[in-house]
Design a protein around this nucleic acid. Structure first.
Length: 814
RNA sequence: GGCGGAAUGGCGGAACUGGCAGACGCACCAGACUCAAAAUCUGGCGAAGUUCACUCUUCGUGAGGGUUCGACCCCCUCUUCCGCCACCA
């Protein structure tokens, strides 16, 4: 009888068809099983499904299947990028209305996904472009508006002339548009909607403690730095003829050393008090900074000019000049600083360049105050405060506290905390995304759309104008509305929301996707949340993963959830690299998932994605390597299909083979339960198969059947189609995934003898074979009894013997 | 500049807690099967030296030092690469 060959297409399509209308492990409501919510965010916002996506799926998918077979009630929906961002990209590329494209895309996804992971059947209706989802995005927005967490203000935004749209900060790469590397991003002042993430800065920072140990330390560090808390004080300097101008400083203890005040070029004082030529100079600085590559910001020469204005130091009463400096940022603190050149590196550089006085006021605890005339650099450490009126002789730490309290008492300042984190600009002038649900009325101002009028949907027919305004502006039936308050003609807001809004709470909606009266039912959330395991690329560390934490806290505060944090454990997987660059649609180096799946099958694609490297590490995609996995699956298939009958070998190798099988089962189980180093799990399976091939004539039919059954289980999380096929070949009819993951048999897995290397002075000289399980004394005795060892020790004095049971033996001789 | 990660054969990687370096796979070489090729199966495969041969010896985990009976693993110094942040007062 000719041997069967592994035909991945036939097998995968067969089970694809059979599983079509059977959600194999759709999560069960009200299950008594322990629950497990595993979710993936896809690695790159880069368009259609590619091999990087497969890698992401493969991890979550294998884990979900494993947990399911371990008896958990598993919820494992699909990551958000697959629906959200590809629509954006395709809409840009194809210039077609996003909604239609997205729906078509979803149809396509459903087909492809079926091949990759049948678990994605869960709630396919949940998509971020669905009208119901818009409704609840808008509902959240209105709640935030009520609580003052959403607001509108004029702000400078990144603008790409080529795209004719505003860009998020993260879409600006080296000062240029991420899609147009040659097009410098411009700054434009536009009315923008913001969400007040800064209101939760303290919360976001504090609750990082809850994530400690369960999230990668790297991600937590990035979030801490991104939030960037600094403790200090605000102080008013009275500008003569203008009024008080507030500065933020972390070193109020050095205030007696402040020899000038420096304003950001965008500071309001500049526009309201300076002559036209100086305003022009300030404008130039702003422009220069806008066009300069952020990568070189620090190397930029410090520039500035004297405004001619004078300010009063509230502590010393000293009158100091007011300057404008290009290194002072309007977006941080108050946009104005007191310059203390003696104790701040940047101030030192600036003041020395422009000949502004330098005055040290802090000395090392056991040292002298520096001499201003000989200083070559600033001294930024804490020490003893000198020449500072009543504060002289205090430690810096004490002076900081005392002076901040003094400022508060005198009503010219206060202790203050500043965050680097900025409010989240959510406005987009785009033709997709959730419309922001407000109406602009000439008499009533900004009027929220009443809840009962939600959702506000995008118009179906949109002309892409490229004119630098939202295309929605050009659609009269969308824009022209009646004011809900006064009934007079009004204009609808045409900004749409950042798609990161969608991704901020989609995982809640997955738990209750058809709810039409609320974003979700809190009781259903209670069962599933927090997410047990979230898997995704590290590039989301300070974007999506901050936004979604923020959103969860807002929902908690409006009573929708009881959780501080949405995700219990986070795993960040490595990127897929090809030809030295990370795979991305914009670079055009993607390996399309469909191609790999067509040629080798989805099982092979997934297995290889996991085999190439441990999941947390970046992996270089080499096409040739896939064939090795394909060969392996073919070997498994042939071995299993030719060993289904009762004919078998003589059984001489049964014990060894069953031992190997159970050791492999233990190894794979351990990998799932701890490290997720699936590359070694798969290698172990290969070893088992290699041994089965080598010993085939000496394995009885029963032992072979047992070994192959174990192998089938081991493959189930990684290669579900093949595993199911083998399950059927073995005479079973049901779904393998519904079987229980087997326990390994410790007795069968135990080695009977061990080969122990014998070292002399740390160098391996020989090996001895001993019964397994000898303790140190027995091992030593066995070694010294060995002929070869005795020969090697001939004529030498044994100083010491180190015996490590089961590992090795080292004889130290003279 | 700050923080974090990494460096092992021709390649991806393994060695889990200080105990046999190179598992497993790719590539390559040889053999079997075949008219032939593909597929498949079997064997070899870090470097240098050595033996007719079974072998054996030395070197070897980015560089240099240290700790230890023993170091890819721990400590110190350095090099290179990658990621994120970066004039944050």
């Amino acid at each position: 009888m000719p041997e069967k060959t592994y035909d991945h297409n036939q097998i995968e399509l067969k089970w694809h068809e059979r599983w079509k209308d059977d959600a194999l492990y759709k999560a069960e409501e009200n299950s008594s099983k322990p629950k497990y919510y595993v979710l993936e965010m896809l690695p790159y916002p880069s368009g259609a499904l590619h091999i990087g996506h497969i890698r992401n799926y493969s991890i979550g998918d294998a884990l979900a299947r494993y947990m399911w077979m371990r008896g958990y009630n598993v919820l494992h929906p699909m990551g958000w990028d697959a629906f959200g961002l590809p629509a954006e990209n395709a809409a840009i590329a194809n210039k077609t209305p996003p909604r239609e494209w997205t729906l078509a895309n979803i149809e396509k996804m459903k087909r492809t996904h079926r091949r990759f992971a049948f678990s994605y059947d869960w709630d396919r209706e949940v998509t971020t472009c669905e009208p119901e989802y818009y409704r609840w995005n808008q509902w959240f927005f209105l709640r935030m508006l009520e609580k003052g967490l959403a607001y509108r203000k004029q702000a400078l935004v990144n603008w790409c002339r080529e795209c004719a749209t505003v860009l998020a900060n993260e879409q600006v790469v080296d000062g240029c548009c991420w899609r147009h590397p040659a097009a410098p991003v411009e700054q434009r002042a536009l009315e923008q909607w913001f969400l007040r993430t800064t209101a939760y800065a303290e919360d976001l920072l504090r609750d990082i403690a809850q994530l400690e140990g369960a999230w990668p330390e790297r991600v937590l560090t990035m979030q801490r730095n991104w939030i960037g808390r600094s403790e200090g004080a605000e102080v008013d300097f009275e500008i003569q003829g203008y009024g008080p101008v507030r500065v933020f400083t972390t070193r109020i203890d050095t205030i007696y050393g402040a020899t000038c005040m420096i304003l950001a070029p965008e500071h309001p004082v500049v526009a309201s008090r300076l002559p036209a030529d100086l305003q022009a100079q300030a404008k130039q600085m702003t422009d220069a900074r806008a066009s300069q590559s952020p990568a070189h910001a620090e190397e930029a020469e410090k520039e500035g000019f004297d405004t001619g204005l004078k300010a009063v130091n509230p502590f010393s009463g000293e009158i100091v000049p007011v300057w404008v400096g290009n290194f002072v940022l309007m977006g941080y603190g108050t946009g104005a600083i007191m310059a203390v050149p003696a104790h701040d590196e940047r101030d030192f550089e600036f003041c020395r360049k422009y000949g502004i006085a330098i005055r040290p006021v802090v000395r090392p605890v056991d040292g002298e105050l520096a001499d201003a005339s000989t200083m070559t650099e600033s001294w930024g450490d804490y020490g003893m405060v000198e020449n500072s009126g009543p504060y002289s002789g205090m430690k810096s730490e004490d002076a900081r506290r005392e002076m901040a309290l003094r400022a508060q008492a005198g009503n010219f300042g206060k202790p203050a905390i500043t965050y680097r984190l900025k409010d989240w600009g959510v406005s987009r002038q785009r033709y997709w995304g959730t419309p922001i649900p407000v109406i602009h009325c000439a008499t009533d101002g900004v009027v929220p759309v009443p809840d009962e009028d939600l959702p506000v949907l995008l118009p179906k027919q949109i002309q892409i104008t490229g004119k630098g305004r939202s295309p929605l502006d050009e659609v009269p039936e969308f824009v022209n509305v009646m004011c809900p308050k006064c009934g007079q003609p009004a204009r609808r807001e045409t900004d749409t929301m950042d798609t990161f809004v969608d991704s901020s709470w989609y995982f809640y909606r997955y738990c209750d996707s058809k709810n039409s009266t609320a974003p979700f039912d809190t009781k259903k959330i209670d069962y599933w949340f927090p997410i047990d395991q979230y898997i995704g690329g590290v590039e989301h560390a300070i974007l999506h993963l901050i936004y979604s934490r923020f959103w969860t806290k807002v929902m908690r505060d409006i009573g929708l959830t009881r959780y501080d944090e949405p995700v219990r454990k986070l795993f960040t997987q490595g990127m897929v690299i090809r030809n030295g660059t990370k795979m991305s649609k914009s670079v055009g180096n993607v390996v399309p998932a469909d191609e790999v799946a067509d040629k080798f099958g989805a099982d092979t694609a997934r297995l290889f994605a996991l085999f190439a490297a441990p999941p947390e590490r970046d992996v270089d995609w080499i096409d040739a390597g896939v064939e090795g996995i394909y060969r392996f699956l073919g070997r498994v298939y042939r071995l299993a299909t030719r060993n289904t009958g009762s004919a078998g070998g003589d059984g001489g190798a049964d014990a060894a083979v069953l031992r190997k099988a159970h050791q492999t089962l233990k190894k794979v189980t351990d990998d799932f339960d701890s490290r997720w180093h699936f590359n070694t799990s798969i290698a172990a399976m290969m070893e088992l198969v290699n041994q089965l091939y080598a010993e085939e004539p000496r394995i009885s039919a029963a032992a072979m059947r047992q070994a192959i059954e174990i192998l089938t289980f081991l493959l189930a999380p990684f290669a579900p189609y093949l595993a199911q096929e083998l399950w059927e070949e073995q005479g079973h009819s049901g779904a393998l995934i519904r079987e229980t993951w087997p326990d390994f048999d410790a007795d069968l897995a135990r080695e009977t003898e061990a080969e122990i290397p014998v070292q002399i002075n740390g160098k391996i000289r020989t090996r001895i074979t001993v019964p397994a399980g000898l303790d140190a004394v027995q091992l030593q005795a066995a070694a010294l009894d060995d002929d070869k060892v005795t020969a090697l020790l001939e004529g030498r004095t044994v100083v010491k013997v180190i015996a490590v049971p089961g590992k090795l033996l080292n004889v130290v001789v003279k």
